[in-house]
């Protein structure tokens, strides 16, 4: 099941002015649960696409296909929903760099 929560991000606390809470939805990545994503995309102000920077190469094709799928979704294209690609697990020494990940994703797509 997706995790959902409304809270104030740490970065907002130090900001001056009005503090805006954010509603964050963590959608399961398993392919059988992908349709869940369609329930949330129409109301999304932004998408964070999380990539495992460690186990990147063996999953390159699957990651690219999923990302392509998101970038071409009607609701995303129509509303120009911003997508950020987040390279996770970069604390590990064998993790790939964000530049490498970007190049490989561009090449694959």
């Amino acid at each position: 099941e997706p995790n959902e929560g409304t809270f104030i991000l740490n970065s907002e606390i130090s900001k001056k002015g009005k503090i805006k809470p954010v509603h964050l939805v963590d959608v399961p990545g398993h392919s059988r649960l992908r349709p869940k994503l369609d329930e949330f995309l129409p109301q999304a102000a932004g998408i964070v696409f999380v990539v495992d920077a460690l186990e990147f190469i063996p999953n390159l094709r699957a990651i690219s296909e999923y990302l392509y799928d998101i970038l071409t979704k009607g609701s995303v294209v129509k509303k120009k929903v911003p997508v950020v690609i987040c390279c996770n697990k970069t604390d590990k020494v064998t993790a790939h760099t964000k530049e490498f990940i970007r190049k490989q994703l561009e090449k694959e797509m």
């Binding site: 995790n3 929560g5 939805v25 102000a45």
Partner: peptide, 25 residues
């Protein structure tokens, strides 16, 4: 809307990220 959707393949670490963002860590 103030909804941000976290997505990615299974095992990419979305759920850990979700709790880190929620708990401000």
């Amino acid at each position: 809307s103030n909804t941000i959707v976290l997505t990615g393949l299974s095992g990419s670490g979305k759920t850990v990220l979700f709790y880190q963002l929620r708990d401000g860590s």
